[in-house]
Simulated scan of single mutants.
Amino acid sequence: MASASTSKKVREEATCSICLHLMAEPVSISCGHSYCQACLLRFMGPSSSPRRQQYRETFSCPQCRASCHRGSLRPNKQLGSLIAALREQEQEQQQQEQEQEQELSCQEHGERLHLFCEDDGQLICWRCERDGQHKGHNTVLVEDASTGYREKLQEAVRKLRQLEEECTNQKAITATQIAQWEDVKGALSRSQAVRLVMPEAVSLEIEAEYKVPEVSFDPRKGLSSHQGT
């Protein structure tokens, strides 16, 4: 409620007192009030002074009647940014309200659920009341439903929206799990593509070949060598 009250006050401050709409290209004058630039120029009317003296020409503020000079007009950029943000906020709010109205539509006929069937305790549309299974039942406008029914309806709508939010969250979780599984699956595929290359067998036996040189020994040579001495 406080937020709605604040928004209402901001809108009042951003409303041009001449056209009674949100200001377009707001300009401020010496007394401190702001208006749409086009509205204020139209209010002042054409100048009767020479061009070089126009900025000294005076006019009365449309709101407080204070005397101001034409040359006091200054663009109010801060107010312009605030108005732009306010317009955007209002557009988002209208879009949300339209989406909520679409959510509260009859699944069978596509019409807005603006009636409440007291016999069955259900929200229905005008076609359900006229030619559907609720024909001849006691029905009232949703706005005219008793406080008890209204609380039940609000609780039902809250549960429906909560269920929708849970479904959305579950979809996000499922998508994350699928992505993780795809990562694991890819990792397994890459690991299977790797083949271990077995090293060649190396013999542990040491093969050593020793060749003993042949020694020739002639005893006659030995005796002759001794006889010579």
Rank of each mutant, 00 (worst) to 15 (best):
C61S: 10
I124F: 02
K185S: 14
C106T: 07
V184K: 11
L115M: 05
E108M: 12
R161M: 04
A85K: 06
Q37I: 00
C125G: 04
E12N: 07
L153Q: 09
P62M: 11
V212P: 07
I124A: 00
I206A: 09
E166A: 08
R56Y: 10
E12L: 08
E57S: 03
Q89S: 09
L153K: 01
K211N: 10
Q107L: 06
C64Q: 08
Q227M: 15
C68I: 05
G110D: 04
R11S: 07
Q177S: 07
S28Q: 05
E13M: 09
D131W: 08
R195Y: 13
P26N: 00
C167M: 14
I83C: 03
A193W: 02
E12P: 05
G222H: 15
G228L: 14
V194G: 00
L22V: 01
S7A: 11
H137G: 02
L73H: 01
M198H: 12
Q107I: 03
H109F: 04
E101V: 12
C36D: 01
E88F: 02
R112K: 15
V27I: 06
K8A: 15
S81F: 05
G71R: 02
V10L: 15
V202E: 14
E151G: 06
V27Q: 00
Q37V: 00
K221G: 13
D183L: 13
A14P: 00
E92Q: 14
K152W: 09
H21R: 14
F43G: 02
A193Q: 14
S189V: 09
Q96F: 02
P213I: 01
I29G: 01
A175F: 02
G136Y: 04
S105D: 01
S224G: 07
G110S: 03
R52V: 11
T139M: 03
G110K: 02
R158A: 15
V202K: 15
Q192L: 15
K211H: 10
E103T: 05
T174Y: 10
T139V: 15
E165A: 10
T147D: 14
N138V: 12
P26G: 00
S30A: 14
A172C: 13
T139A: 07
G71F: 02
R51S: 13
N169R: 12
E118W: 03
A14D: 01
P50R: 14
R52F: 10
R130H: 12
T15E: 05
Q91L: 12
E165H: 03
N138H: 15
A2F: 03
Q227W: 08
L79P: 03
H134L: 06
Y149M: 10
Q37D: 02
W181S: 11
E214C: 05
L22D: 00
Q78H: 06
L188Q: 03
I124C: 06
S47N: 05
S203Y: 04
P213M: 07
K152M: 07
A85D: 08
V184Y: 09
A201I: 08
R127M: 13
E151Y: 08
M23W: 03
C16F: 00
S225C: 10
Q133Y: 07
D119A: 07
G136V: 01
